[in-house]
Amino acid sequence: MKKLNLSVYFIILLLLVGCSQEKEPPTVEERNAYLDSIEYIDQYEDGDDRKSTLNITMAEEFAELKVSEQYLFLKEFFDTYEKTYGEVFGYVNRFDELYVRFHDKDYTTYSVYDRAFYLTSTGDHFETKDLQDNETLLDDYDKNVVFNGTFKGKTAEESRAESSAKYTGSTSNSDTETYIKDKNGHDWIQLTDNQRFHAISNALYSLDQNGFVIEESEYYYIDALNAFYSDNSTRNTPINEALVSVGLMSGTIYK
């Protein structure tokens, strides 16, 4: 019996020693020092509402690289940053989104995620797995288009005017009564932009009334669902499930 007690004690002691030797999470100061050391990054800031987002502004020299070379640089940076500093603001705010811009541009140039890469000016996106050993296909894009600072070819002023026309001036009573209940991706792709806005607005209102905290606007979730349902294999997923999944994974919907 004494041997058993000593063995148990020894195991507990090892566990305690192991826990005491766990590496402390990095500090914000250490994270900042790392970012300051990265070539091509001129400025950086954390998201105002979502600490899981990092915004970086690139030096003009970065634009001289091929688009494929920029992608490889940004993907390596994303992976390294996520592994080392992903939880610098805690697990709830774990890093999952990188916005890349250049000086004097209305919009970001790229959005980088664990599994996707977005070109803002064209609205095109690629799965990371599809770019594995195939990143040179990005060089087929005209760099003048990639760096023109637009969102799907529209300036910020043009986008604001279009949004105003879609979501305010042209609102119809039937559109405001659009809901996501009993709808899936096949239904989603048939909705107009105005109907999608009101469907998500109504869904977010319902979540809010049930005690959930919503940290993003309708447009954020509309873009996420557009990307999710762009693949035909996902369209059987109910919209309400997809919306909640987006909110939980991004940390923007919680109770």
Rank of each mutant, 00 (worst) to 15 (best):
Glu127Lys: 15
Tyr91Arg: 10
Asp133Glu: 15
Val92Ala: 08
Val92Arg: 05
Ile253Ser: 02
Phe73Glu: 00
Asp48Phe: 04
Gly153Asn: 10
Leu137Asn: 01
Tyr118Ser: 04
Asn173Trp: 09
Thr136Leu: 04
Glu29Asp: 12
Leu15Thr: 10
Leu74Tyr: 00
Ser170Pro: 00
Ala33Cys: 05
Leu65Glu: 04
Tyr141Met: 02
Tyr113Ser: 04
Lys2Ile: 14
Thr234Gly: 01
Glu87Cys: 01
Leu13His: 08
Glu30Pro: 09
Ser159Gln: 15
Ile180Glu: 00
Thr178Ala: 09
Tyr34Arg: 08
Ser159Val: 12
Lys83Ile: 04
Lys2Asn: 13
Phe151Pro: 00
Gly169Gln: 12
Asp142Val: 13
Leu35Thr: 02
Ile11Lys: 02
Asn32Leu: 02
Glu97Pro: 01
Ser233Asp: 10
Thr80Gly: 03
Lys255Ala: 04
Thr84Gly: 02
Asp193Thr: 13
Leu243Gln: 05
Glu215His: 09
Ala227Met: 05
Ile11Val: 14
Lys23Gln: 12
Asn184Ala: 11
Asn202Cys: 08
Tyr81Gln: 09
Ser159Asn: 09
Glu162His: 14
Gly247Lys: 08
Lys183Phe: 10
Val8Thr: 12
Phe73Asn: 01
Ala242Phe: 08
Phe151Gly: 04
Ser164Trp: 15
Tyr81Gly: 00
Gly247His: 02
Met1His: 15
Asn93Val: 02
Ala59Gly: 02
Leu225Ser: 07
Asn93Tyr: 07
Thr27Asn: 05
Asp36Ala: 13
Leu35Asp: 06
Glu61Gly: 03
Lys51Pro: 05
Leu138Trp: 09
Ser37Ala: 14
Ser174Ile: 14
Phe117Met: 03
Ile222Arg: 15
Glu82Ser: 11
Ser164Asp: 15
Phe228His: 09
Ala116Lys: 14
Phe62Thr: 06
Gln195Ala: 15
Ile253Asp: 01
Asn226Trp: 06
Leu204Trp: 09
Ile214Gln: 02
Ala33Tyr: 12
Ala224Pro: 04
Ala161Pro: 05
Glu241Ala: 07
Gly247Ile: 01
Asp182Trp: 14
Ile222Cys: 01
Ile41Lys: 06
Tyr99Trp: 15
Lys3Gln: 14
